[in-house]
Amino acid sequence: MASGETPTALQQVMLGERSRLVRFLAARGAGDEAEDLFHELWQKIASLSDRPVGDPRSYLFRAAENLMRDMRRATLSRARRQSDWHDLGDTPQERPAGERALIAREQLAAIDATLAALGPRVDRIFRRYRLDGAGQADIATEWGISLSSVEKDLQKAYRALAELKAGFDAE
């Protein structure tokens, strides 16, 4: 818009949804910077090729959600680098690669064991949802079970993994 170019179809939807998107960004952690982030989102959308998306409105909110996730990831990794700097005094560096790989393997084994303990259906449904990106409705059809059963299985997996993570975080 700044360069005087014609807004893409998606950007036109974005203008119509502007106040809702800004409100979402503010509530989602952007606070006073919601307008700035709306502008960042605008630039991102401008850089996309102008191809039709299934549901433009939902696509934009998803993009806003992902933007907030990226921001949080950047904040967390900055905080981690600073704390490593503190821990190691004058030789700032991350944990050695070997140690990181060991921790990653240990966590993966614990996650596999936690999911296995919830039973094969919960295990498979969680992986189908998170790793394959299948929707709850599709999973319900595949298993011939109700939507609420799928949701309950996912809740069991999320709950158990959150507890597992809390244990690792406390170490």
């Binding site: 979402f24 509530a27 549901d55 998170r130 990106g133 929707g135 709850q136």
Partner: peptide, 25 residues
């Protein structure tokens, strides 16, 4: 628990209840 339910719902590719999520936040 409620926050976890929101995270699960948002993870669904078909999720479209963004205004309700905004209101809850």
């Amino acid at each position: 628990e409620i926050a976890q339910r929101w995270a699960i719902r948002v993870a669904d590719p078909a999720f479209d209840d963004w205004d309700a999520l905004t209101a809850w936040l």
